[in-house]
């Protein structure tokens, strides 16, 4: 595989994406919603601050399953502080897996299916760029914006959260911490690659962008919701060990997924799906 050809595909596609508001809009809106609006909403909702004790029963499981170091930290907090701390530290964490998936999904769905729709695929397939170079070029153009969007979102989120914690937790900064660094820089890119590999493969098989997006969302969103639900219910806690375990699992899955994706890549089948 020639890296310069992979980068060539990336550069060409990125130029196109930069001029396509349909694709660009979700890249900006989704991270902003999750990293800024969501924590601000949580922090500014009076009902959370003045939540009755009975409402806290549902999160007891989560509190019991928290890592010991976190339990030690919240021991010194009052119940509202602890609740908000847990929300910001844990409940929102899985949403940072949603960001790279949502951002990359729009781009990856458009990768081959969009070229088919716009009837640009034939000239691309006629070039001496190999199957794996084409495939990886399309993966890269979805992956890099996803990683950048997640990193920027993390910085924004840290700023918003720390502004709160400075005021209400006696000068203590919640972020960054090891859990979040591992989540944003290890698990999140790995999960994004899984989603991208799957979506690009689907994109080669279907006729249009919307079809690719719907199928990939139909597979990835339920998995994410299970993760978010598991976290809220205290079944799966994204602590450092769990994140490392999930990262390794997804890395292994990615190896097989990409091998299968490239082997399933067929120029002939792509051409046969021209609209």
């Amino acid at each position: 595989m020639r890296i310069n050809k992979v980068i060539l595909i990336f550069k060409k596609d990125w130029r196109e994406i930069r001029r396509n508001w349909q694709i660009l809009l979700p890249i900006f809106v989704i991270p902003f919603m999750i990293s800024v609006l969501l924590p601000m909403f949580i922090l500014s909702t009076p009902s959370i601050i003045s939540m009755p004790a009975s409402s806290l029963a549902g999160i007891e499981n989560l509190m019991k399953n928290l890592p010991k170091n976190i339990q030690t930290e919240i021991k010194e907090m009052n119940i509202q502080q602890a609740l908000i701390y847990i929300m910001l530290q844990y409940f929102i964490a899985p949403f940072f897996l949603v960001i790279p998936i949502m951002v990359s999904d729009v781009i990856a769905s458009d990768s081959f299916a969009g070229e088919k729709e716009r009837k640009t695929i034939e000239a691309l397939l006629a070039t001496p760029i190999s199957d794996d170079e084409l495939f990886m070029g399309k993966v890269l153009v979805a992956f890099i914006p996803a990683v950048i969007a997640t990193t920027v979102s993390f910085l924004l989120y840290s700023f918003v959260v720390d502004l709160y914690s400075l005021r209400l937790l006696n000068g203590k900064l919640i972020l960054p911490n090891l859990t979040w660094l591992l989540l944003v820089f290890c698990l999140s890119p790995t999960v994004a690659l899984t989603s991208i590999g799957l979506t690009v493969t689907i994109s080669t098989k279907v006729k249009g962008f919307r079809e690719a997006q719907q199928i990939s969302a139909g597979i990835t969103i339920p998995i994410l919701f299970m993760l978010i639900f598991g976290q809220v219910m205290g079944i799966v806690i994204l602590g450092p060990q769990m994140i490392v375990f999930l990262t390794i699992s997804f890395l292994v899955a990615n190896f097989f997924l990409f091998s299968i994706g490239i082997s399933l890549f067929g120029r002939e089948e792509i051409l046969s799906k021209l609209v």
């Binding site: 060409k12 130029r15 196109e16 001029r19 396509n20 716009r118 009837k119 640009t120 695929i121 034939e122 000239a123 691309l124 006629a126």
Partner: peptide, 9 residues
């Protein structure tokens, strides 16, 4: 190719 196959953006 049969279609111009050009990137319009």
């Amino acid at each position: 190719t049969e279609n111009p196959s050009l990137y319009e953006r």
